[in-house]
Design a protein around this nucleic acid. Structure first.
Lengths: 97, 97, 97, 97
DNA sequence: CTGCCATTTTACCGGC
DNA sequence: GCCGGTAAAATGGCAG
């Protein structure tokens, strides 16, 4: 009753397994995180505030990026093409892929 | 204005850094996951269904049954005939409206 | 620096305001929805299942069947026996309370 | 076959219907929104940028709120109880429930 | 155990 | 018409 080819079934199985493996690792990291917070709490730190701090630091970067994107958008909108090299060629930001 | 001791501050900093490192790794796993789904999609698989499969496998049988039973109950209660026909009752007519 | 005409600016402003008004109303409806679910919960109903019911009713029969068939197919392909037992096979095993 | 009481079934049905009605209205608003954007586009405006503008204006308010919340948190953390009346007793914000 | 918050998932919209 | 990204919804998890 394999309305799906045998090799396709194999592939699917392989994908599912890879996914489950990755999710497992991800969950493990989640546990580690929890453990660190627990330890910090044991040292008397307020975890809620710590979470806010982490969040804030993360958002700071993103906000900067959003602003830049918005600026790009507006500049494009009014037909102002600023420095072909420059913003586009910046290697200074967060060289993420 | 350090309402917090110096060594405590050090500790806090260390905790924050450990947390940020872990979250970074976690995010990387998340990207990997995304990539696997993308690859599966490129092979013609329906990722939405794949996600359902993964989710189902995470749930154990008992929970699955309970949820299904409750859903049936509610549908019956409001007079909604949704025929959950899984692999069982498929093909037996029911020209729906 | 108005790369945009005056009347165009007026128009744009008007559009933005209409949009914001509509989004406001939409958000209000969202709050109402939330309130209804909360009330239902207070009456002992399982809101998660309720959401499923609403979703199912939104989908028409054909789509429902297609999705179910695909899910069955995938589960079979990877050798996962999840027994979707809807209202059909109930009562034959686990005397649920 | 009503493993659920008759009156409970009635209630459930009523809740579901209220929900579906509200979602209908919400969807209608969504259509209106779409229409406004379409009209604006017909006038030559770039809808993507318009969306960004709307988003920006919305986020501005939220950021303000987040900042305030964070401030509260930090003040609480260092045991600084600022004005018993004041921030707490403000009836001026968004009188949400 | 309840309410919040983070993550995940789904639906939408614009682009190609 | 499909695909990709982006915003809303929903689910699950955590702290209180």
């Amino acid at each position: 009753m394999d309305a799906i080819g045998d090799s396709a079934a194999k592939q699917l199985k392989s994908f599912i397994e890879r996914i489950e493996r990755l999710e497992e690792e991800k969950a493990a990291l989640g546990d580690d995180l929890k453990a660190v917070y627990a330890e910090a709490k044991a040292f008397g730190f307020d975890t809620k505030i710590m979470r806010q701090v982490v969040k804030l630091r993360k958002l700071d970067g993103r906000d900067r990026d959003e602003q830049a994107a918005l600026l790009d958008l507006y500049c494009a909108a009014i037909g102002f093409d600023y420095t072909p090299l420059g913003r586009s060629a910046r290697g200074l930001g967060k060289g993420d892929e």
